[in-house]
Simulated assay, not measured.
Amino acid sequence: MIKNLLNDKPTKLFVIFTSFFVANALIAECIGGKLFSLEKLLGLPVHTFTLFGESGLSYTLTAGVLLWPLEFVMTDIVNEYFGPKAVHRISYVAIGLIAYAFIMFWVAMSVPADSWWRGSKAEAGVPDMQTAFASIFGQGMWIILGSLTAFLVSQIVDVTVFHRIKRRTGDKHVWLRATGSTIVSQLVDSFIVLYIAFKLGNNWSWQRVLAICMVNYSYKFVLAVGLTPLIYLLEHRVDRYLGHDTAKRMKAAAMGKEPLLETTLTND
């Protein structure tokens, strides 16, 4: 039984996609506490600007945005071959495991720290390792709630927009459904996380929420468009791996046009 499952190409593909999806989401959450300057990363001078009456803005972004665009690319690929139910399932798995991870982070922060360990990095400029550990892994509850809620809602939006576009275009215009769904869902994601984490959690003004939302979204928008060739590359590689007939049946089943026939098991 296990050998048959492991030799079934669609099954192996789904396991790989799910593993990457969950790992990518968890890593993005873990590194999200760091802020970086996009201008400095690109070797450009930092310029501040005003948006919605909020001054002093620049492209200072959370490190999590380095990975989240890949999450939406993966969503579109899973959506293309396995359908919305599969996207929902791996999204629920990701959210459950992220929540579990943060519970374990809290447990690890709460256990008594060894006195030698606390001062072991003092010469490297870290006088208290316990404080540093808690600062890295201890995100505020509003941020965690906002991030998980935004992730779930944006995934549902991405799936819905993707399939509405595909029903109109069929198998043509991959770029339109992939990029279009990502552009819409990332706007939703950017707004919800800021609204919950900082409007509700820290009483930010609406103008500040909207200004920072648009700064973050402009980065995500450009990246979503820029990653469009990656969608075509991944789809081409998946089609070759599955075989044309199997890929065609899976895409049809993902749209609910026909039941997915049992795939031929190989020993490749």
Rank of each mutant, 00 (worst) to 15 (best):
N4F: 08
L5Q: 13
L6Y: 11
K9R: 14
T18S: 15
V22K: 07
A23V: 12
L26G: 13
G33I: 08
K34M: 13
K34Y: 12
L35C: 02
F36Y: 14
H47S: 13
T48Q: 12
F49N: 08
E54V: 09
G56K: 06
T60E: 12
L61N: 10
A63T: 11
L66T: 05
L67K: 05
F72L: 02
F72N: 05
V78W: 06
V78A: 12
N79W: 00
G83P: 08
P84V: 03
V93E: 02
A94C: 07
I95Q: 01
G96W: 01
A101W: 00
A101S: 15
V111T: 14
P112L: 00
A113F: 13
A113Q: 09
W116R: 11
G119L: 05
K121A: 15
A122E: 12
G125H: 07
P127A: 13
D128M: 00
Q130N: 13
G138W: 00
M141L: 12
I143Q: 11
S147D: 07
S147I: 04
L148H: 06
T149W: 01
F151C: 05
V157H: 02
T160D: 04
H163G: 07
R167D: 11
D171F: 07
D171Y: 09
R177A: 03
S181C: 01
Q186H: 03
F191A: 01
I192Q: 03
Y195S: 06
Y195H: 06
I196G: 09
F198T: 10
K199A: 14
L200G: 05
L200R: 06
N203Q: 14
W204Q: 10
Q207H: 13
V209K: 05
V209R: 06
K220M: 07
F221Y: 10
V222G: 15
L223G: 08
G226Y: 07
T228G: 04
L230S: 05
L233W: 09
L234S: 13
H236K: 15
H236G: 12
D239A: 04
R240Y: 10
R240F: 08
Y241Q: 03
L242A: 06
G243E: 06
G243Y: 02
K248W: 08
M250Y: 06
A252N: 07
A253N: 04
K257G: 10
P259G: 02
L265F: 04
N267C: 00
D268P: 00
